[in-house]
Design a protein around this nucleic acid. Sequence first.
DNA 1: AGTGCCGGGTC
DNA 2: GACCCGGCACT
Length: 485
Amino acid sequence: MHSRRLVKRSILGSRVYAPSPTGDGAVITGVVQAVKQENKDASTGPRRNVYTVLMQDGSLKEYSEDEIAVGSAQMTAKGPLKSSLKQSSCNGWDHPAEPQKVAPDPTEDPRGPDCKSGDHARSVSLLEQKRKVVSSSIDVPHARKSEEEVDMDKVTAAMVLTSLSTSPLVRSPPVKVNECLNGSWKDGAFTPSSYSSSGYWSWSAPSDQSNPSTPSPPLSADSFKPFRMPSVPAAPDDVIDEPDGSSLLFDEPIPRKRKNSMKVMFKCLWKNCGKVLSTAAGIQRHIRTVHLGRNCDSECSDGEEDFYYTEIKLNTDSVADGLSSLSPVSPSVLSPAPPPAPDPRHPEGGGGGAKTESTTPLSRSAPSTLYLVHTDHAYQATTPVTIPSSTNFTPSNCSSFSISWQSPPVTFTGTSVSPTHSRTQSFGEQRPQSIAVLSSPPRASGSLRKSRGEGKKCRKVYGMENRDMWCTACRWKKACQRFVD
DNA sequence: AGTGCCGGGTC
DNA sequence: GACCCGGCACT
């Protein structure tokens, strides 16, 4: 069910393996460009799909679904396209239960759950059209080095979609969404690499509720238009439902640049569940539909789901990226944060099942990375940052900052450290040390405070009890005159 | 935390 | 000027 979209997603633009046209038995890879159906009317016999595959050498070949196999990183599933597709389309997505509510799109229902139908063919053709548009405007990677890489892109795209799907902006006008998304994208915070390994993807999540448009980062709002416009203008729902993202998933040259190593996954806390999804929306839907048994879409949610999932943060990358990579991240992560809708509700928590100090609602919005930034600037920023009492602030992140901040002293070399300078640079504890390291006349610039005397002083010699025996200077807390250095 | 002592206040 | 002390710098 609802897998139809998945099908579409799986076919066009997908990398497949096909027998080499040379007939030498070799297997080559190609990208599905189009799908046709044979035996379409045969109500009896099985329909056969014929896939037009763009081969590595740029040629187009047609293969029946029996001849080619879907290529993916999880090639364990490598096999006839037919079966692969069936699998992925009908039950492949890890969203077990989530009826039509996936997306607030009415059109979803009419098309029905059947995975292979005339409608399917139609939508495929639509996709094909889209794809053409895409291909014309974007350099579709025809040949890639490895399946891993291909998968990478998928994952990357998924992450993008995921991040976007978590955005509350979903409910706002598309245009706005785009803008925001574009903005946040730059700060994209996903590291596909690590994610792919973690495995559990909620593909449906991004596709359904999030704005399908989920532009790829490099695309401006304008350049993005072609993707959604050409497709059925009459069916706005389709725009929403239609996982444009799906086509984008494969067609767009998704930038590999990873900005952040922090991944946020969402884990279902329902006992014996433990489902982990990559998007808050996904996990919410999962909880809503699977555990809470609600069939309505997110609109009618009272937000109870929030109590049944928690945020898991994965620090997938080294901290080496430093602030440059971290700070930009926060915005994007932030964007989804202020969930306009699902906030003010049931303080006591619905079923009482959720143990986690109800940090979940926050954590959902809580851009953990935000903390990083804050931590970063904490030294100078008294600015109160509304940091939800959350949770997932991993220490490792802190370390990254300490690292990045240890270098600054180096910059001092050559220049005398004026007090003010050190002030502005003030690293709290580190300040004095950095100055000391410079060994330059520490207090030279400012007061002429002479270095502390090495010898014994009255205080030390006589002790506090014999203060009477101190020299007057010592008594007056002045420079000792008796044991002058 | 302990110590040295500067800078400033009070009488 | 004698005395005291807050507070910074340093150990």
